[in-house]
Computed example of a mutant assay.
Amino acid sequence: MAEAIKPSAALALLLHRQSCGALAEPAPRDETLRLIMQAALRVPDHQHLRPYKFIIAERDGLDRLGAIMQRAAIATDKPDDVVRRAPGMPRRAPMVIIVVASPKPHDVVPVFDQQLTAGCAVMAMQMAAQALGFGGIWRSGWFMYDRGLHRDLNLSDEEQIVGFLYVGTPQRELPPPPVAVDAERYMVWL
């Protein structure tokens, strides 16, 4: 039997990744935020197209984002409770980073590949935030697909939100991650 290999700090971070929805100030700022963004810029990106953009909402920007979300909820006839909750949704964290796939015309790299790159950026930022002592949660939902919301954020018809990364300081100790799932259940060998 082979000797067990101790996981490195990076592997331990990946194996203990957890979303944290209970977030408060402080959010990452200055050099810490730049490090998180640098992690996003290092994701797999065929042909180095950088097919993404990041819209950062904090402080008053969270209220502006909430107003945009409320307008989208009203415009799409969402139930009254959704319309009422929408303005406060961004305030669940001190910072929301809206990650947008912004595909570039390319003969080799299809739009879907470029959207996957933007999705990888969300994961990289969440992992970097956690490594730096912050918490985060990648939120999605119908807002991601609402074209009116996209227009209010000045996105083009070709651009697509791939996630809302809520970031801040965890307000509670997270329980240990669940016991490892048997990876073999999800593997198929050819």
Rank of each mutant, 00 (worst) to 15 (best):
R147A: 14
R92S: 11
M187G: 09
P44N: 04
L49M: 05
L155V: 04
V83I: 15
A24Y: 09
D146A: 11
L33Q: 01
K6M: 15
I137D: 04
A4G: 12
I36D: 01
E25G: 10
L15E: 14
R147Y: 05
E31H: 11
D81K: 15
P178Q: 10
A4W: 08
E173R: 12
G119K: 03
W189C: 12
A2G: 12
L116H: 03
G168W: 00
Y186H: 11
K6Q: 13
A12F: 10
R91H: 13
A93T: 04
I68G: 04
A27G: 07
A86Q: 01
Q38C: 14
R84V: 15
A67H: 07
D60C: 12
E31C: 06
P94E: 01
L13W: 00
E58G: 08
K6V: 13
R34T: 12
L153K: 02
P177M: 08
R85I: 08
F112M: 14
P51G: 04
A129L: 03
L155S: 05
A72T: 03
A57W: 02
A73F: 02
L35F: 06
R139D: 08
L15W: 09
D152F: 05
I68V: 14
W142A: 15
A39F: 04
R34Y: 13
R64H: 11
S140M: 11
Q115N: 11
P170A: 02
D30P: 10
F134D: 00
R42L: 12
A40N: 01
L149K: 00
R185L: 14
D182T: 08
S156W: 08
I74Y: 11
